[in-house]
Design a protein around this nucleic acid. Sequence first.
DNA 1: GAGCCTTAATGAGGATAACTCATCAGCGAT
DNA 2: ATCGCTGATGAGTTATCCTCATTAAGGCTC
Lengths: 254, 254
Amino acid sequence: MATSAQNSTKAKRARLPRERRRMDIMAAARAVFVEKGYEEAAMSEIAARADLVEGSLYRFFKTKRDLLIAVLEVSYEKLLADYDLQLAGISGVRNRLRFMIWRLLVAFQENPDLTRLLYRHIRSEADYLSTRIYELNRKYAGHMDAILTEGIASGELRAETPLRLVPQMILGGIDQLTWRHRMGVGQFDPARTADEMTEFVYRGLVAGNHSAGGPQDDVANRLEATSRDLAATTARLASLSELQDIDKKTNSSD
Amino acid sequence: MATSAQNSTKAKRARLPRERRRMDIMAAARAVFVEKGYEEAAMSEIAARADLVEGSLYRFFKTKRDLLIAVLEVSYEKLLADYDLQLAGISGVRNRLRFMIWRLLVAFQENPDLTRLLYRHIRSEADYLSTRIYELNRKYAGHMDAILTEGIASGELRAETPLRLVPQMILGGIDQLTWRHRMGVGQFDPARTADEMTEFVYRGLVAGNHSAGGPQDDVANRLEATSRDLAATTARLASLSELQDIDKKTNSSD
DNA sequence: GAGCCTTAATGAGGATAACTCATCAGCGAT
DNA sequence: ATCGCTGATGAGTTATCCTCATTAAGGCTC
């Protein structure tokens, strides 16, 4: 609302701090990119929406593509915000794996245009590797790796688990499964998909193909693990409510 | 050699049959696309290599993109030529699965530029579905489906096999695993990769491994599901309180 | 508070590339 | 030899990214 400096006669040369301008431009760019896609998004329109002239954009972003990357980096970062925090509250290989899958599926479902831009113009270009998005995906895969490694150490997963392969197949599978939704045709159910995928993956990973200790033993192990999970969840709930209390107190003093 | 009608002074108006011209154009286009990529490939250069003038291309292909699609359709068809024939000579769920995976990996390894174009400009665009390439991929997935169904019928695979999921994860995994090679950085070994992937997938599919399907198992399943639900609820709670934090902060900054 | 100076902002214009269209002429049929 | 169909032309249009010389806003010094 109060964006235009002087509401009459259209202010000619509002001089704003650099960071503020950058953010304005990125906000405008995000809107146009989402609305029209990359190629169809004209720099002139982005400039217009950011209350700027086309040439000025290039003082903030060297190229149209740089602008896209900047926009998607912050968007993707928000998209995956603190999933690792939430992951910390979940225990057990299987549950943790499922959470990772489910979280990404939900993120994809809630942001189809964003993920479309991501796949079309970032992940399939060679400079993807020098992108913050790549870093985030690496971190994500790293978490999966940690989960698997942990599972192997505890003996729950077989020692020959292909550590590199599994995250790749999960990420690739998610890509494939969400393609239609991303393109605006079709839907998917994150919870059900996550269940199916987790089940399938877990079966491929779990140790003891030929009943090492009998099925009952296995069930007992899983029950114990689940019990630990529940305890962890309870603990997390408790600490959460404490945090909220503290929050309320500190906020009210502001 | 005999392409140019009069070998002196560059024949001005060689009049060739329509199909012949189409093929010439597609051959030239393929070369330029592979060499430079889609955006960097200029219609003028394609025309020059096909011994034509730029404007003439548009009498054969309505748009640059149409030309690309036509080129990739025949290339992809060749790429997967008679894998189904070879498949017929292989028996056993596991062997057949492995062959499917291995075959695609080899094709991808041998044609990095082609697959790069495919992923960058066909598979990530909405009109992919109306493409012959889509049909070919469907056929490929259909073969996998048949293999799995057959395995279920014989009792080798468990009956609850997620038929839709598995081919998607395999194709997606192959996509991911070959990304670096496609982009010109890194390598992969089709045989070893196929082995690993087949082993992992097969373990996830085969009947009668860890969950024997007994009543105890059912109890464990239900308990685990409950635990997951609780964890998810906690996670939601957590993100909720965090969101409130952010809200408060952003509001105070106004 | 006047003048200076850094630099944000401008806007006209260059460069390139996809695509169009009125016109021309090669080639088979008469 | 002539005619007409249509393949082929190439000049031109349009759209868009990006550059650059110029202008003046606003903080800083005295």
